[in-house]
């Protein structure tokens, strides 16, 4: 005789949560496109390391601390990790057996978000270890290696803005294609169009409040240790972007130069020669705080939208 529902032991919330995390992790690490993007990310990091050496770049002792995987990688990693995390369950019909187990939709949603976080954190950790070791090999002994985890944390936050956006589109549309295309359209709009606006408009400050690179400027520091020389041309490495995609590098900048300010500028491409116009000045501390606040606002709002759509979804399939 089987036990009645009242007699059955109730598994804890965490027991069930970890079961869903396990389910999701196995899915993620076996996705072919995820594996392909991770390989592509490693190729990009390798190029990032090898190319300057190829052009006889001078030693850069701050390479590892100022390293960022870049906004395209943020978007692509987010895309392949969560584009079918919820919508794929609906499309394949696997949502039916999953949601008829003793797990709540909120639990499933949180487990999926947590699994995405772990996958991204682990991927970036491996990439950062690779770039740090590579930085030492290519550029010699590295300064401020203790700041590498800070850059890593910032990169994860930046990626999670896109994770939340793509999850929300997927959860509402229940279509992986729609999630991918919707995310791509927003990425192009925010990042590329944003970059154009930043160089032609005096209202570049508005870009600080949308996901992407934000406004651009130059970090005012007395010490120009980040300048590097490529074939006798000195390049300033003190340029700063203030958006949600640059939290990692700005966190490192803040840790290195806590009282520094940033001159936000734009380049008037219509004047001859092109003229750099200064728009306003902000402290690096404020820029970091604002970009983190904006990132978290987007993450929370879009995750809430995704959760709400998932929670209210009716399974007709």
């Amino acid at each position: 005789m089987t036990a009645t529902n009242q007699e059955r032991p109730r598994p804890s919330w965490f027991t069930r949560f970890w079961a869903v995390v396990r389910y999701e992790m196995l899915w993620n690490i076996r996705k072919k496109k995820f594996i392909a993007i991770v390989i592509a990310a490693f190729v990009l990091v390798t190029v990032d390391l090898a190319l300057p050496a190829f052009f006889n770049v001078s030693k850069n002792p701050a390479f590892a601390a100022t390293f960022s995987v870049g906004n395209l990688v943020f978007f692509l990693i987010a895309l392949v990790t969560v584009m079918n995390s919820i919508s794929g369950e609906f499309e394949s019909g696997t949502i039916v057996p999953l949601l008829t187990k003793p797990v709540s939709r909120t639990m499933v949603f949180l487990a999926k978000v947590f699994a995405a976080f772990v996958i991204i954190l682990v991927t970036y950790t491996v990439l950062f270890i690779y770039s740090t070791v590579g930085g030492i090999v290519v550029y010699g002994p590295q300064d401020n290696l203790q700041l590498v985890p800070l850059a890593l944390l910032g990169n994860v936050i930046s990626t999670f803005v896109w994770v939340a956006i793509i999850l929300a589109i997927g959860s509402i549309s229940k279509s992986s294609l729609f999630a991918a295309l919707g995310g791509l359209v927003l990425f192009i709009a925010f990042v590329f169009a944003g970059s154009i606006i930043a160089s032609v408009s005096n209202e570049a400050g508005a870009l600080n409040y949308v996901p992407g690179v934000g406004a651009t400027g130059v970090l005012n520091v007395a010490q120009r240790s980040q300048n590097i020389t490529i074939q006798n041309i000195t390049v300033s490495m003190n340029s700063v972007s203030t958006g949600t995609d640059n939290i990692g590098t700005n966190l490192v900048n803040y840790a290195r130069y806590p009282s520094a300010t940033v001159n936000i500028t734009r380049t008037d491409v219509f004047s001859t020669p092109p003229k750099v116009i200064q728009l306003y000045t902000e402290s690096i501390g404020f820029i970091v705080l604002r970009s983190i606040a904006v990132a978290f606002a987007y993450i929370l709002v879009f995750l809430f939208v995704a959760w709400f759509a998932f929670k209210r979804a009716q399974i007709f399939e």
Binding site: R30, P97, K311
Partner: peptide, 25 residues
Amino acid sequence: SFREHADSRLGIGYMPELPKFPKHL
């Protein structure tokens, strides 16, 4: 209407019509 009754499913076994399970498992 947001309440879920996950515990009620502890004693239920359900097989959907033409069930679909994750292909990667």
